[in-house]
């Protein structure tokens, strides 16, 4: 039982880390440019497809990843110039409409280019296999790599935002863009970079899941909703909030799914417990979000002051 709990906690953390990678970019873009980007999940999908393609071309996952990341960055910047740049000063609902349209275009585009069938990315040899944990339980190496990569990214982002000059500009740009602009900073370019960075982070998440998940058109849609849950629970614009909320969502979903029914069996008879557990399991994170927002209407780490 304890072993299982340990394993589930690890799994929850790993799932949370993945959500964080996608959510970090979304919350940055949302917090700094005040842009609701529904197409963020699509960037995650594009990252996975680019990785799959470059891995197949080069025959090596790491080379594929190294090529896919700049490609995702470029893709993000191109999208920014073509579409998003013109959406910054629009109201949120127009942004929703336009980015919803973009989802349709990109999902269908991926379907046309790569076909409807899911495609495969093999796990690189040195990261395959599993290591013993406790007792008979083992844990896949690749998942440990995902956790490590996510933690490093989180650390890097924290450093970038709170310890560098670019980060300072970002924070300033978020609270008062015209002022920063008046001080001679090219806000347009700053926004473009942030958007590209966000796209690359989402693409990185897509690349990391490509070997363990099915790479298919529309794979970004479910992730999109979960990431919105994450950034809203965390408080929009807060990287720290996104990190905490992502882990929370990952853990509640993974651990709750397994141990919810077990706990329910203590108070209900087995068949009722199983039925209730089955009904509640998919709702868990939504229930959690409703509770969090009920108690803290602006999320766990609300931005002070606002803009």
């Amino acid at each position: 039982m304890t072993n299982l709990l340990l394993l589930q906690v690890l799994n929850g953390v790993q799932f949370g880390i993945l959500l964080f990678l996608v959510a970090a970019g979304l919350t940055l873009i949302f917090g700094i440019m005040d842009l609701i980007n529904l197409a963020h999940g699509v960037l995650y999908m594009v990252g996975a497809y680019l990785t799959a393609t470059f891995t197949a071309l080069t025959g090596d996952f790491f080379l594929g990843l190294a090529l896919a990341l700049p490609a995702a960055l470029v893709f993000g910047i191109v999208l920014e110039r073509l579409v998003f740049r013109q959406l910054y000063d629009r109201d949120h609902l127009e942004q929703v409409l336009a980015t919803f349209g973009l989802i349709l275009v990109l999902n269908e585009g991926v379907l046309m280019i790569w076909g409807a069938a899911p495609i495969s990315v093999p796990i690189p040899e040195i990261l395959s296999g599993s290591i013993p944990l406790v007792g008979p339980l083992r844990y896949p190496v690749f998942r440990i790599v995902i956790i490590a990569a996510g933690l490093l990214t989180a650390l890097g982002l924290w450093f970038l935002v709170s310890r560098t000059r670019v980060g300072m500009l970002l924070r300033a740009g978020a609270s008062n863009a015209p002022m920063v602009s008046a001080l001679g900073v090219d806000v347009k370019r700053l926004f473009m970079l942030v958007f590209g960075l966000g796209a690359m982070l989402a693409g990185f998440a897509g690349a990391m899941v490509a070997p363990i998940l099915s790479v298919e058109p529309g794979m970004g849609n479910n992730v999109l909703i979960l990431t919105f849950v994450v950034i809203v629970i965390g408080g929009i614009g807060s990287i720290r909030g996104a990190f905490v909320a992502a882990l929370l969502v990952g853990l509640v979903d993974t651990v709750g799914r397994t141990f919810g029914p077990i706990l329910l069996q203590k108070v209900l008879d087995p068949s009722a417990a199983s039925q209730t557990g089955r009904t509640l399991a998919p709702m868990l994170i939504y229930i959690m979000m409703a509770i969090v927002l009920f108690a803290r209407p602006s999320g766990l780490f609300p931005k002070k002051g606002g803009a």
Binding site: N3, L4, L7, Q8, N11, G12, Q14, F15, P136, L137, R138, R143, V209, I212, L213, N222, V223, T254, V255, R257, T258
Partner: peptide, 13 residues
């Protein structure tokens, strides 16, 4: 569902 690690852990156990 995308990630089956929770279920696989139970199978292993």
């Amino acid at each position: 569902q995308l990630d089956f690690s929770a279920e696989l852990a139970q199978i292993a156990a």
